[in-house]
Amino acid sequence: MTVTPYIGLGFVLFSIGLFGVLTRRNTVGILMAIELMLNASNIVLVAFSRMHGNLGGQLFAFFTITVTVAEVAVGLAIVIQVFRLKKTIHADEITLLKG
């Protein structure tokens, strides 16, 4: 058994997530796409862990999940706060960085 399909699956999911981050207008949608990307990287991590017979990759996935939870919590708080400030949840209408 090889892990190649698992890694390929991770890559596909990552690209889909990237597509979502690039195209979604709703900030919550973008957050979801980011979740997708992180999930894809977790799959790849676990696949490599399996390939090497080394538990480090799994542990890293643990940590990633934990950090992701934190990120979602903070990210949603930011979304709500920005929403209060700008009265929109559309990422392309929040242009505070405009030069």
């Binding site: 690039l22 973008i30 505070l96 405009k98 030069g99």
Partner: peptide, 11 residues
Amino acid sequence: LQNGVVQDYLY
């Protein structure tokens, strides 16, 4: 280029 849209920066 600096249109302030985060997604365009991502490109």
